[in-house]
């Protein structure tokens, strides 16, 4: 396990250097199969930037904690192909809605503007928003904006509070944030806390 941790740190350090240009190599951990090329590496940089900014807008600190690495890992697993497609389209739509509402791609919007755009997804109102600039009658797209939003929120929270081996929760920042409550990482220590409580006869 220690070997794995060291390997991961080395990997994350290396990745930090390329993250700023939107290149996301596969998250190769010793105990899983090779997954290169990374899913995010196949996306245009503006979409990667949109997803990264969205995770940060959903939970401040998530991007630095490795949310994109986490997403990259899971999008390469066999059973999430539809989810990967949803995220890809979602990134495009984030930029489109941001352009309509704020005349900028999502990653370049202010925090308030990003919250406004995400609110449109949460309300499932993307079609109406895009209809503002579309000629002719509004038509419903097949894109599930609300589903995309819920998925992205869930992935972001998973990345922040899950096992660091999946690429998120860098330096266990999420567990530090919640104060190491409960004991999902080490039940052995809890045993020492249990003393008889005379107020509770049973």
């Amino acid at each position: 396990m220690e070997t794995l941790e060291l390997h991961r740190r080395t990997l994350l350090k290396g990745l930090a250097g390329v993250a700023c240009v939107g290149l996301w190599p596969a998250c190769r951990l010793k105990d899983r199969k090779p997954t290169s090329p990374g899913w995010l590496a196949r996306l245009p940089p503006d979409r990667v930037a949109a997803l990264g900014a969205a995770t940060e807008a959903i939970l401040p600190g998530a991007r630095a904690a490795g949310a994109l690495l986490f997403i990259d890992y899971w999008m390469q697993q066999e059973m999430v192909e539809n989810m990967a497609h949803m995220l890809d389209i979602g990134a495009i739509m984030l930029n489109r809605v941001a352009q309509v509402e704020h005349q900028a791609v999502f990653a370049e919007c202010s925090i308030e503007q990003q919250a406004h755009v995400l609110g449109i997804f949460q309300k499932n109102a993307v079609d109406e928003t895009l209809a503002k600039v579309r000629r002719g009658p509004a038509k419903a797209s097949r894109f599930d904006a609300r589903g995309f939003f819920e998925r992205l929120v869930t992935l972001t929270l998973e990345s922040y509070l899950g096992e660091p081996k999946y690429g998120g929760n860098k330096d266990k920042v999420g567990w530090h944030f919640i104060g190491w409550k409960h004991c999902w990482w080490s039940p052995k220590h809890i045993g020492t806390l249990i003393d008889a409580d005379p107020r509770l006869p049973y």
């Binding site: 807008a57 959903i58 939970l59 401040p60 925090i111 919250a115 995400l118 609110g119 949460q122 609300r146 939003f149 819920e150 929120v153």
Partner: peptide
């Protein structure tokens, strides 16, 4: 799902 960002 309306709470996100710093409020979350």
């Amino acid at each position: 799902w309306a709470v996100f960002g710093q409020p979350l």
